[in-house]
Structures are given as structure tokens and as C-alpha cells.
Design a binder for these strands. Structure first.
Length: 212
DNA sequence: CACCCGATTATCT
DNA sequence: GATAATCGGGTGT
């Protein structure tokens, strides 16, 4: 069978009626970006024929200079360098000796660093792959936590620094904005410093959120 | 170089 | 509700 028409990646993107989030989205206040990432679509390409997709339902903002819970708080290191790098790129770190956490670098030009932790997503495509990786078939437990989500999507430090704004192994699609009335704003999970800051955001009543 | 502990989760009791 | 699993970076000797 002969392929008669070559469609550019740009056309493919337009024809599917979705846009990849670009720099202007990420280059804003980290807390606002965390809130507006709710509902957006993460695309993870491992096998071109079966893209993995999920809808973000829970995030947390970590804002470099003043936020004592942020990995970048004490300054730039090799390990946290992506937080100081260009927005719209991934920051992936290894935690507790066995899990990976996925962040999207985001900040205003006034801040030296910042990122949004992706805490949970609603699985959309590639469920079979995710279920295999997670050793469970229960959808509500597949990607309802930062460590679960990276496991389901096979995201490790290999993806650290990946550009999320171009079609590749990991990128993010735009989607309708969630009504702020349906967003819960509360304190972040699992931290001891700056524990009172309300920088956690999740979609109200969504069963794929990590906790209630 | 020893020690501590963390943006977690699965698996107990 | 409590805890084990497991390890790299940060801190201090």
C-alpha cells in the first residue's frame, strides 16, 4: 500500500483540533499555571501506535525563591537544574529510593525557578499498558498519585529536561479550562516546610485525585 | 565517609 | 493507622 499524502506534523496537530501548550502558557505565575493545568492532557509516546494519554486532575505549585518546600529553595544544583531552566520542560526527580515525580517547569520572568508537580491524572488512552505497568486493573488506582502516574507512563529521569512543547516522547495538549468553582485549593501533601501554603489544586469530586 | 531524610506507596495490623 | 521498602543528595565530621 502506497502512502499518497504526506501530512506535516503541524497539520496533524491542527486536524485533530488540539494544540500543544506553549511557552506563553507556562511563562506565568506558577500557582496559576498549576491551577490551569487541571483538565489538560498529558501525552506519552512509547509506541507510536498506542499513545498513552491522561487528563490532569491534581497539581501542586513549587515556587523557587520564597517557597521553602521547593527543591530550588536553596539554590541551583545539578539535581534541580531543570527548575531554573526554560519553562515548558519536564523536571523529573527520584524520591524515597523507588519513585519518580513529574513536574512541569513554570514561572514568571521575575522568579528564578519554579515548577508544577503533577500529582494525579485520569487515564484516557493506553489503559492496558498502564495496567500492566502498575500491576492493577483498577482505574481509580492507576494514576492517582505522583509516583503511580510516572510508573504507569514509564517516566523516569530519562525524561528529565524533556521539552513538553513539541511532539515527542512527552508533551501536553490544551483542553477546556476548568471552572474555578470546581477546583479545590488546599495545602500540599507530604511536606514539612511551608506546609501552610495553599498551593495544591484538584478537580472537585474527581475520583482520580490522590486523596480527599 | 557516616548519617539523615524526603513533593510515596503497598501492605500489613 | 502504622510501617517497611530503598537510595541519592545534602550536611557535617
Amino acid at each position: 500500500m502506497e502512502r499518497l499524502v504526506v501530512v506535516s506534523e503541524y497539520e496533524l496537530q491542527r486536524s485533530s483540533m488540539v494544540k500543544i501548550l506553549k511557552k506563553s502558557f507556562y511563562n506565568r505565575d506558577t500557582a496559576l499555571v498549576a491551577q490551569e493545568l487541571l483538565g489538560k492532557i498529558i501525552v506519552r509516546i512509547i509506541d507510536q501506535d498506542t499513545p498513552l494519554k491522561g487528563r490532569i486532575v491534581e497539581t501542586e505549585a513549587y515556587i523557587g525563591s520564597w517557597d521553602k518546600a521547593c527543591h530550588a529553595h536553596k539554590g541551583k544544583r545539578v539535581a534541580n537544574a531543570p527548575l531554573f531552566g526554560p519553562v515548558g520542560h519536564a523536571y523529573v526527580y527520584f524520591i524515597y529510593g523507588m519513585y519518580y515525580c513529574l513536574n512541569f517547569v513554570s514561572r514568571t520572568t521575575q522568579e528564578p525557578s519554579g515548577g508544577v508537580l503533577i500529582r494525579a491524572m485520569e487515564p484516557i488512552d493506553g489503559l492496558e499498558y498502564m495496567q500492566h505497568k502498575r500491576h492493577t486493573t483498577k482505574l481509580h488506582n492507576l494514576t492517582s498519585g505522583p509516583g503511580k502516574l510516572t510508573k504507569a507512563l514509564s517516566i523516569t529521569t530519562v525524561q528529565n529536561g524533556v521539552n513538553l512543547m513539541q511532539q515527542g516522547e512527552l508533551y501536553v495538549l490544551d483542553a477546556p479550562k476548568i471552572d474555578p468553582k470546581n477546583i479545590v485549593v488546599t495545602t500540599r501533601v507530604g511536606i514539612s516546610k511551608a506546609a501552610d501554603e495553599k498551593l495544591r489544586f484538584y478537580i472537585k469530586d474527581n475520583p482520580f485525585v490522590s486523596k480527599k
